[in-house]
Amino acid sequence: MTVVVWICAAMLGVAALLTLLRMALGPTTLNRTVAMDTFVAILVAGLGVGAAYTRSTTSIPIIVVLSLVGFVGSVSVARFVGREGKGGTLEGESS
């Protein structure tokens, strides 16, 4: 089990770094939102791997909360950006 968990942790760590890269590159707010969404999902996955390894269930409520917060976050950003309209200030360069 320990080996499996280390492999999982490595894959998730690389994945988290890649989403951070996308978040830094952008180029638009929406790209960063999608990256943030994926980042939260990877965080949840990491907590899940930890919970499975230790068999401790203290992190499971955190998983519940994170999975909800990620959703609310991306939906509100999408609404906010959608209201700006074409050529809004939020876009930066086009993707």
Partner: peptide, 29 residues
């Protein structure tokens, strides 16, 4: 399950970086 799930999360992140536009990135995400 854990290995397969982590692998899929990794490919989602690879797709997120490699894909050319927002829509394809969202497919990955």
């Amino acid at each position: 399950c854990l290995l397969a799930g982590s692998f899929l999360a990794l490919t989602a992140a690879i797709g997120l970086v490699r894909f050319p536009d927002l829509f394809t990135r969202m497919h990955a995400a």
